[in-house]
Design a protein around this nucleic acid. Structure first.
Lengths: 358, 358
DNA sequence: TTGAAAGCGCTAACAC
DNA sequence: GTGTTAGCGCTTTCAA
């Protein structure tokens, strides 16, 4: 049953392999009657094109490599989902590699994918600096789009959320709900998400309170750091903690709960990314939702353009605007949204509406 | 830079392509001096084998297809991570397809992967019944291992956690901590995880309380159902809720918190799977940890055996024993672990080694 | 131990 | 509109 080839179809339908190929890949006009016979034979035999042969011949595999730092980072599964769907919709298959946050492994995977003749690469770099060489080398061979994180300027096309706009949404929301003594629990390092969110806070927080831009504690993007960071900033008695991602926010909530601090009563807490846990914690975390489906679609579109040669222009850096998702962790002080109510304001499934709670 | 072929290496090293091939794939003995020259040339040119050509010639792509129902199901990212690592370690690449819980899409992906000449398939079936035909057809063409869920008996090799043992661990733990009025919040349907965990509860709960096996509420594997299920069973005043997975347990915790019920004081709650959220909820969820790395390794091993032809024996169904992870949600009644303490033993308020931020 | 040559299944010139 | 043919890069007989 396996191994029905073009020749088999040709024999059964009584014409040449070339004709069969033309019918099946629609490359050129073919007589209606012949086409019918060919298709019939192909169906009857259960013909399936051999992609390896196609790839060898046409130097195109219809395959895209996706390299990411850690699939277990809770933000990535949704992105992977949307990316695979977008690419499959265009008839491409996705080769997945998880480099476990190791730039050396990343370089190896990139090289391996290249030797497997991927048509293009989608890379979420493990490290802003140390991923650079491998990515640049790969980008010279095939179309390559960076996602989520950058790795230095001028390396490749990139698609990411507009971090600056996201932080601005948070600050506006906090201002509108009367918070002034805000402070920032962020991540150190040069990674673009860390740096941009940090810079956006520094630039925007002054509008709430002149001292706010200085109230910053930097660690990494983890729950543990969120817990520790609360101890660092709490002596300053902030009324809002702007966290650089949801994991930090969740850690902060845990520590605040231990300390017996009321959220959002005494202090509001906000996150970034809208990972599934943000909707499920108690209280639910107000956060910035990345437009995951749109990011994926944009990346796929860009790859398609580069692959078809329609776009040979300069490198592009696409930034998409995020949404604010307001949950209990930042409800207006004294509002009726009870501290006890976990996620019931939110719509089931954790996809709450982003209408402000007023 | 691209497209260094065997011929190039042959030309530079002054021997034939056949020899180069033999050196590089170590197929047969080659003169030491020749081998050295070949390897040198290959290195110098940056030769990378063309997998498409290899695949066409050798009818092996070194590629495995991984088809799963929903990468956003919080249990799967860890499994995908371990699977890709295990397979990459054997030199295979992984083609990923997420069928979005749709058996029709699943069937299409399976067919597509097959036509891309995957050497083998790893499938987590979307539906116990409706995935069956596609899986069985694929299993007739290439080695195929089912993971996590089954799809009827006799379809293919399978690797999964021992659900029965997992539920028994939970029941033993609850018995040991003095719980008697246990009840089960499970999932309906024929899916193996649902059915096996249900059956294990029914079989084991009688040891705690003759009425326990009857105290069962069935829905699906979701947070929403966990919330709703509490309302169904609460009138029976249970002292422990055995949930069929962590999402149900998290939903139950949320609803109990709303109702003002103390956990674990008034009622213990347990989950299954040990997804990341189980550790991060407050209180942390006592749960059954699936041996994810071992499941992945076993699946990879089984595939390797089938691929190499070393194992042509009957179908295998491998079940691995899970571990119990005890967290706050089931702490012994009256113990000192405070209801308020999420994941750390509480530290007196506000202590911090770092300088206050102002 | 090495080389020459066939051919995996397919597509794309190039004829007719 | 359709057939013939030449490879894509590689592995593997078969000879030498």
């Amino acid at each position: 049953m396996a191994d029905v080839t073009l020749r088999d179809v040709a024999r059964v339908s009584g014409c040449s392999v070339a004709t069969v190929s033309r019918v099946l890949s629609g490359t050129r006009a073919v007589g209606a009657e012949t086409a019918r016979r060919v298709r019939e034979a192909a169906d009857a035999l259960g013909y399936r094109p051999n992609h390896a042969a196609r790839a060898l011949r046409g130097r195109r595999t219809g395959t895209v490599g996706l390299v990411l730092p850690q699939i277990t980072n809770p933000f990535y599964p949704a992105l992977v989902r949307e990316l695979t769907h977008a690419l499959h919709a265009e008839g491409r298959a996705v080769l997945l590699a998880d480099c476990d946050d190791d730039p050396a492994a990343e370089a190896e995977y990139v090289a391996d994918l290249l030797s497997r003749q991927v048509d293009a690469l989608l890379v979420i770099p493990a490290d802003e600096d140390r991923s650079r060489d491998a990515v640049a080398a790969a980008a010279a061979r095939v179309p390559l789009v960076l996602m989520d994180r950058g790795c230095g300027p001028g390396v490749a096309d990139s698609v990411a959320v507009d971090n600056t706009a996201g932080v601005a949404l948070v600050l506006d929301h906090l201002a509108a709900t009367g918070r002034r003594r805000v402070c920032f629990l962020g991540a150190a390092g040069t990674a673009s998400a860390a740096a941009e969110r940090r810079a956006a806070y520094a630039a925007g927080a002054g509008a709430l309170d002149p001292g706010a831009p200085e109230r910053v504690a930097l660690g990494d993007f983890s729950v543990e750091w969120g817990r520790a960071a609360v101890d660092e900033v709490w002596p300053a008695r902030p009324d809002a903690l702007v966290c650089a991602n949801d994991l930090i926010a969740i850690g902060a909530l845990q520590r605040l709960q231990q300390l017996g601090v009321a959220v959002p009563g005494e202090v509001a807490v906000t996150g970034f990314d809208d990972i599934p846990m943000a909707a499920l914690s108690a209280p639910g975390v107000t956060t910035v939702r990345q437009p995951v489906a749109e990011l994926a679609a944009e990346a796929a579109r860009l790859l398609g353009l580069r692959l078809s040669g329609e776009d040979t222009g300069p490198q592009r850096s696409v930034r998409l605007a995020p949404d604010l998702v307001v949950r209990e962790s930042s409800a207006r002080t004294g509002a009726r949204v009870a501290i006890l109510a976990p996620s019931l304001v939110a719509v089931p499934g954790g996809r709450s509406e982003s209408a402000p709670v007023t």
